[in-house]
Nucleic acid binder design. Structure first.
Length: 569
RNA sequence: CGGGGCAUGGCGCAGUCUGGUAGCGCAUCUGCUUUGGGAGCAGAGGGUCGCAGGUUCAAAUCCUGCUGCCCCGACCA
């Protein structure tokens, strides 16, 4: 591609709309432009990267035996009513009506449509297992789109759905997809971890997320430094402390704590460390009323864990101020488990505390020197908190570290959730009708582009790994407007490299060298060739990798082989 | 959805408090010079100041309402 014929606009200044680095660089490099909140144009340079990602995904999906299909973006409401998600999905589902007033959705995912395909096309267990996938545009009306294409409302996703006659086949299909994902993210040179995950709204049993590790990631992940355990923080178990609880050593006393409503205030006011204070949260109970969840003052409630308790309403809701008053006789901020009129669940760490401080269920009063068993009944024990950095790994090996991640893939064993609701069956060996089992496997294609930039950049711009680079090589001739020999040599080199199947961005613009270098670095083309009059006289051009700081002189007649070796290695 | 902020040529911003002919840098176009790290000089084009009302002799500026966008929290590829 000749850059003189490529209408690219790079900027020195960062657009004000962008907060994270990948978003800033994508805008500055002219890869994307915003059209509306969470909705973007992909310009030529950006789309080339999207296509690279798609190509790798396609190759690995095909290698794994999956079959590519294409499903509609606009789907009839009937399918969603049949699965029940017309009512479950909420405002993230974009609904619309056609001219005849019939209802449709813009697909945020395709379980319904693919299950409809399966029930119509699949008749016999002999046709199973089968895995259909597509690479297609999704729309999710996110509450808060942000970070450019990292969390857009419209985005490109690879979604795959497998159909099975039995559990063993579903597990095998899941394992095959897991292996394919490891291969593709490896080929994309992403630094990622697969982590145990909550199945969330999509439902089903086993589930893993593929998380690209990055400071800017929106997800917190707990990874063990002792083995390969990794889990989304929502799911990582917090083990009960190993040592037994200390014996009471202080008397119970009431202390006046005017306006000390938060643990931070209380801890500072009483000069008691946060981990000696008890946090009591009242949430709505499953059968009405409230339930008390008790945590150590320095720990955070984990909503996913809490709403798994039978007694707790799901989804988790904090109790209203009125309900708090009814159960505790006090305002929020002074609630404690002593003489509380509701059931109490204590996190393992909270249960391990002795001589602690907690609310006295009376305004401006707390209790000090409180002990389980002595001053109040032993509560029910539960795992209620988020794990923190340094917690022991649940596998028993090593300690957990909390890192940030960008979720680029998610795989599920769905079971019969959709096939049952939509009556997708095949005949088994004995001629009996059986409901198929399903797996589903997503990848955020456009999100990967941003995630790769998050992991590969420097102060000058993007640094593409070879497999994702929009062009392999940038060819920069110096002073080609004045020097006919340079122009001739550059044209020739461009032709030779292109003929060899190498994708070259040929910067034949009438621009100063500094401009060309700066643009090449911002765009992140991994391999750079510079052709100047000086080198030309010696029969060579200069090579430099985007990550390198020094040039290498390469004889002009061996450039093709040299670049090919670089790309192969 | 709750909280905070912004809206002025393509981009980044000043001007708004204290009303009085809309400005700067970058980018773009023309010419000359320049050419190994975002050039210099000279000239040029481009803005109903987010929208709608209102106050005023006069509104980017003051008032009211609306819209869009960004950021922080609960959800997700």
């Amino acid at each position: 591609m000749r850059l003189s014929q490529y209408p690219i606009n790079t900027t020195k200044e960062t657009p004000a709309e962008a907060e994270v680095l990948s978003h800033q660089l994508m805008l500055r490099a002219g890869m994307i432009r915003r059209v509306a909140a969470g909705i973007y144009d992909w310009l030529p340079m950006g789309l080339r990267v999207v296509r690279r990602v798609e190509q790798i995904i396609r190759e690995e999906m095909n290698r794994a035996g999956a079959l590519e299909i294409l499903m509609p973006a606009v789907q009839p409401a009937e399918l969603w009513q049949e699965s029940g998600r017309w009512h479950e999905y909420g405002p993230e589902l974009l609904r619309l009506k056609d001219r005849h007033d019939r209802e449709f959705v813009v697909g945020p995912t395709h379980e319904e449509v693919v299950t409809d395909i399966a029930r119509r096309e699949l008749r016999s267990y002999r046709q199973l297992p089968v895995n259909f996938y597509q690479i297609q545009t999704k729309f999710r009306d996110e509450v808060r789109p942000r970070f450019g294409v990292m969390r857009g409302r419209e985005f490109i996703m690879k979604d795959a759905y497998s159909f099975h006659a039995d559990e063993a086949s579903m597990a095998a299909g899941y394992a095959a997809m897991r292996a394919a994902y490891v291969r593709m993210f490896g080929r994309m040179q992403l630094n990622f971890r697969s982590v145990q995950a909550d199945t969330g709204a999509i439902g089903g049993s086993a589930s893993e997320e593929f998380q690209v590790l990055a400071e800017s990631g929106e997800d917190a992940i707990a990874v063990s430094d002792g083995d390969d355990f990794a889990a989304n923080i929502e799911l990582a178990p917090a083990a009960a402390p190993a040592q037994a609880r200390a014996a009471p050593s202080q008397p119970l006393e009431r202390v006046t704590t005017p306006h000390m409503k938060t643990i931070a205030d209380l801890s500072a006011f009483l000069a008691v460390p946060r981990e000696r204070c008890l946090k009591t949260l009242l949430v709505d109970g499953a059968g009405g009323g409230v339930v008390a969840l008790v945590l150590r003052g320095d720990h955070e409630l984990n909503a996913v864990k809490a709403q798994k308790l039978q007694a707790v309403a799901s989804p988790l809701r904090m109790a209203s101020a009125a309900a708090v008053r009814a159960a505790s006789g006090s305002e929020p901020g002074f609630v404690g488990p002593v003489d509380l009129k509701c059931s109490v669940y204590a996190d393992h760490a909270a249960l391990n505390m002795a001589d602690f401080v907690c609310g006295a269920n009376a305004p401006d009063l707390h209790l000090r020197g409180v002990n389980w068993g002595r001053d109040l009944p032993e509560p029910a024990a539960a795992d209620l908190r988020n794990v923190v950095d340094g917690d022991p790994s649940p596998t028993g090996k090593g300690r957990l570290r909390i890192v940030r991640g960008i979720e680029v893939g998610h795989i599920f064993q769905l079971g019969r959730k959709y096939s049952q609701a939509m009556n997708a069956t095949v005949l088994d060996e004995s001629g009996q009708s059986v409901t198929m089992l399903m797996g589903c496997y997503g990848i955020g294609v456009t999100r990967i582009v941003a995630a790769s930039i998050e992991q590969n950049h420097d102060e000058r711009g993007i640094i593409w790994p070879d497999p994702l680079a929009p062009f392999h090589v940038v060819l920069i001739p110096l002073n080609l407007q004045k020097s006919a020999p340079v122009r001739a040599a550059a044209d020739a080199l461009y032709a030779v490299l292109t003929a060899a199947g190498i994708e070259v961005l040929y910067d034949d613009r009438d621009a100063r060298p500094g401009v060309k270098f700066a643009d090449a670095e911002l765009l992140g083309i991994p391999h750079r060739l510079v052709l100047g009059e000086r080198g030309l006289q010696a029969g060579s051009c200069e090579y430099r990798h985007r990550r390198a700081t020094d040039n290498e002189d390469i004889p002009l007649d061996s450039v093709t082989g040299f670049i090919k070796a670089k790309l192969a290695g």
